[in-house]
Nucleic acid binder design. Structure first.
Length: 565
RNA sequence: CGGAGCGUAGCUCAGGCGGUAGAGCACUGGCAUGGGGGGCCAGAGGUCGGCGGUUCAAGUCCGCUCGCUCCGACCA
């Protein structure tokens, strides 16, 4: 491709709305443009990268035996109502109405659609297993689109759905996908982790996320370098036993005056005790209306996902000041003793002795509280958020903590959708059974951003070779010098003949501008044709390392062959 | 959805006291130049987000509205 015929609108300055490196560089280097909040246009360069990512995914999915389909973006509301997700998915679901008033959703995911297709067309165990996938635009009416391609309202995803006759077979399909995903992310050249994850709104029995390590990621994960344990903090466990303070002799319960002292830090300082001996009491309202008190040790953070899962509800939130008042609860001094709410305790509270809690009375705390002497929780449950330094649940070595971008998520769904939508098959024994499903997503457009987050420097993007828009960038430094343009043209033609994807900067602009653009665009290899052609030489530069090397012109075909391979 | 900020040239931003609209970069023509966004000359480019109000006069003050961004809630 000749740059003079192409479209690469580069920008010297970062657009004011861009915050993170991937957004800044993808816009500046002419890969994407923003149309509205969370909506992006892919320019020719951007589309090339997107297609590369797609094709890598497609290749591995095909190799794994998955079958590509293309499902409509518009999905009838009735389908979503069948599974209950018309309500459950909430405001994130983009809803539209046709002229007759019939309601549709712009698909954020396609479990309902694919399950409908399968129930209408698959009857027998002989038709199974099947795995269908598509690469399709998805929609989410995000409350807050952010960070360019990382969180858009419209984005490209690969989604796949497996259908099996039994859970055993479904687990096998799941494992095939897990291995396939590893191959995909390996080939994409990204630094990623596969982590245990929560199933969220998709539901299902268990799931794994594929997380690309990135400072701007929304996924918080912990992992163990020793044994390989890795999990999203939403679901991560840690070895509680090693997190316990040593046993103590029980001291008598005492109520102490703690004027205006309510936060853990304040109480710890005021009473001269470590936060590990203070127990926070949090009052939560569950989405089914239940009100519960949850105890957790002062140094630990409660994990609302674990709470939601334990109580089997859609959502939860802390009670507001007004609600606490209505319940007769004293904000800032809440405690389990004499509280008229079911009290659940995090596992961190189990075995804790002589600790501090609020006294349900303004400006008072109890000290030397002990279980079960002073109160008894309904149950001890793992509610706390794992963090770096916690002992690994498998091997007890300290866990590491990092943030990342979730670029893939696989779920063993079980029969949640097949039962809700009556997707049954007739098994060998002649009995009708629900199909066992799995679903598997990859954020294609998000991967493009993730790759840039992980591969850039102060000058611009450094594309991994597998997804770079071109392999080779030829810079003819002075287009008025026929000797230079002749050589550059010749290399360009050779590269095309050999099959190296090449961008040829033949524009009549200053050399500096060409170098700056080339750095910004981030094509892995660069051949600079300049003054040295007089000595029969050009220069090869590697974007990643900045390494420069002089090449004799007759050696170029060999070099191109190498680049192709 | 709560809180905050910002909308002026293609981009990044000044101007704010109410009185003829600015800079840098980009763009067009010309000249010179040709290894890191370089120089000189000339030029084009604006319903100052929109609607309404105050005023002799509004980019500037007031109200409403739309958009974009940030923090939070939420989320892949």
């Amino acid at each position: 491709m000749r740059a003079s015929n192409y479209f690469i609108p580069t920008l010297k300055e970062a657009p004011s709305e861009a915050e993170v490196p991937s957004h800044i560089y993808l816009v500046r280097a002419g890969f994407i443009r923003q149309l509205a909040a969370g909506l992006y246009e892919y320019l020719p360069l951007g589309l090339r990268v997107l297609r590369k990512i797609e094709n890598i995914i497609r290749k591995h999915m095909d190799n794994a035996g998955a079958l590509e389909v293309l499902l409509p973006i518009l999905t009838p509301a009735e389908l979503w109502q069948e599974t209950g997700r018309w309500e459950v998915y909430g405001k994130e679901l983009f809803r539209v109405e046709d002229r007759k008033g019939r309601l549709f959703a712009l698909g954020p995911t396609h479990e309902e659609t694919i399950t409908d297709l399968v129930r209408k067309n698959i009857r027998s165990y002989k038709d199974l297993p099947k795995n269908f996938y598509q690469i399709q635009t998805k929609f989410r009416d995000e409350a807050r689109p952010r960070y360019g391609l990382i969180r858009g309202r419209e984005f490209l995803m690969k989604d796949a759905y497996s259908f099996d006759v039994s859970e055993e077979m479904a687990v096998q399909s799941y494992q095939v996908m897990r291995d396939t995903y590893k191959r995909i992310f390996d080939e994409l050249g990204l630094d990623y982790l596969m982590v245990e994850a929560d199933t969220g709104a998709i539901g299902g029995k268990y799931s794994h996320e594929f997380v690309v390590k990135a400072a701007n990621g929304e996924a918080h994960i912990v992992y163990c370098e020793n044994c390989g344990y890795a999990a999203n903090v939403e679901t991560a466990k840690y070895e509680f036993e090693l997190d316990r303070p040593p046993p103590e002799e029980e001291k008598p319960l005492e109520k102490v005056y703690t004027p205006n002292v309510s936060s853990v830090e304040e109480v710890a300082q005021f009473l001269g005790v470590p936060p590990t001996k203070i127990v926070k009491t949090l009052v939560y309202i569950l989405s089914d209306g239940r009100k519960v008190a949850v105890l957790i040790r002062g140094d630990r953070e409660l994990n609302e996902t674990k709470l939601i899962n334990y109580f089997n509800v859609l959502d939860c939130r802390l009670a507001t000041s007004e609600e606490l008042k209505e319940m007769g609860v004293v904000e800032g001094f809440v405690g389990p003793i004499g509280l008229d709410l079911p009290v659940y305790a995090d596992i961190s509270v189990e075995g804790l002795h002589n600790f501090v809690v609020g006294a349900n009375e303004k400006d008072y705390h109890y000290i030397n509280v002990n279980i079960p002497r002073d109160f008894k929780p309904v149950e001890f449950v793992d509610f706390s958020t794992a963090r770096g330094g916690d002992p690994c649940p498998n091997c007890k070595q300290p866990l590491k903590e990092t943030t990342g971008l979730e670029v893939g998520h696989i779920f063993l769904l079980g029969t949640k959708y097949s039962e809700a939508m009556k997707a049954y098959f007739v098994d060998k024994d002649g009995k009708e059974k629900p199909i066992v499903m799995g679903c598997y997503g990859i954020g294609v457009s998000r991967l493009m951003a993730a790759a840039v987050e992980q591969n850039h420097d102060d000058s611009g993007i450094i594309w991994p070779e597998s997804i770079a828009p071109f392999k080779l960038h030829i810079l003819a430094l002075n287009t008025k010098d026929p000797q230079i343009t002749d050589v550059a043209e010749q290399i360009y033609k050779q590269a095309q003949e050999i099959g190296v994807e090449v961008l040829y900067d033949d524009r009549d602009i200053s050399p500096g501008a060409k170098f700056k653009d080339a750095d910004l665009i981030g094509i892995p290899y660069r051949i600079v044709v300049g003054k040295k052609v007089k000595e029969g030489k050009v220069e090869l530069q590697e974007r990643k390392t900045g390494k420069k090397e002089e090449i004799q012109i007759p050696d170029i075909p060999a070099l191109l062959e190498k680049l192709k391979g």
